[in-house]
Computed example of a mutant assay.
Amino acid sequence: MRNWRSLVAVGATLPVVAFAAACGGDNGNGEGGATGGNGGSLSGNLTGAGATFPNPVFQEWAADFGAVEPGVRINYQSIGSGGGIEQFIRSTVDFGSSERYLSDEDLEEAASARGCEGVQFPVIFGSVVIAFNDPELDGMVLTADTIAKIYDRQITNFNDPELQELNPDMDLPDQDIIPVHRSDGSGTTYVFSHYLSTENDEWADKYGEGTEVQWASGTVGGQGNEGVSAQINQNRGALGYVNQAYAIETGMAQASVVNADGEAIYPTLEATTEASELAEIPDSFQFDIDNIGGEGYPITGTNWIFVYECGYDDNTAEMLKAYWNWVLTSDEADELALELGYAPMGAELKERVQAQVERINSQN
Score class of each variant (00 low, 15 high):
D174P: 02
V180P: 02
Q164E: 15
A253C: 06
A264D: 13
Y342T: 03
T52K: 00
W324H: 14
F125M: 05
N325W: 03
Q254C: 03
G40H: 07
A110K: 06
G293E: 06
L349C: 06
E69P: 00
S186K: 06
T13F: 08
D205K: 13
A343V: 10
Q363M: 13
Q164F: 04
V10H: 08
G25P: 00
S127M: 02
Y342G: 02
G48P: 05
V180E: 02
T146Y: 05
V327F: 03
D152R: 14
T35G: 15
L42P: 01
A255C: 09
V213A: 02
V357M: 08
S186V: 07
V213R: 08
L269C: 03
W326V: 12
N233Y: 05
L14H: 05
K149Q: 15
I150Q: 07
A216W: 13
V257T: 08
G227P: 04
E105P: 00
I289L: 05
T143Y: 00
E263I: 09
G293K: 06
N167K: 08
P161M: 12
P70T: 11
L269V: 07
P168D: 10
S193T: 15
T188S: 11
G24W: 06
I248T: 10
G39Q: 12
S256P: 06
T219L: 05
P56R: 02
L269Y: 01
N259E: 10
G40I: 08
Q59M: 12
P56H: 04
Q234I: 13
L172Y: 06
A144P: 01
W215K: 09
I85W: 00
A238M: 11
T316V: 15
G208V: 13
N3V: 13
A131T: 09
S330A: 14
F121S: 07
T189R: 04
A20W: 00
C116Y: 01
L340V: 07
G48Y: 10
L239Q: 06
V307T: 12
A18N: 10
E108A: 15
G84S: 06
W215S: 09
E165S: 15
H181R: 14
A144H: 03
R352T: 04
D160F: 11
S193C: 09
G237K: 10
G251F: 05
F132T: 08
G40Q: 08
G346N: 14
Y323K: 14
L163F: 13
D184H: 03
N55M: 09
A343H: 04
L172A: 11
Q59H: 08
S78G: 09
V141N: 03
G139M: 05
D94E: 10
Y323H: 15
F192E: 12
S41Q: 11
G185M: 02
R100F: 00
V307F: 00
D138L: 08
E108L: 13
E249W: 00
Q120T: 10
N75S: 12
E280H: 10
E199Y: 04
Q154K: 15
Y323T: 13
A253S: 13
L102K: 02
R100P: 00
V72M: 03
G294H: 03
D104K: 11
W304L: 09
E263T: 14
A317D: 05
E202S: 10
F121E: 07
T302K: 02
N259Y: 11
N133F: 11
A148M: 06
P135M: 04
G237C: 12
P56L: 07
W324G: 02
A22V: 02
M319Y: 01
Y207L: 14
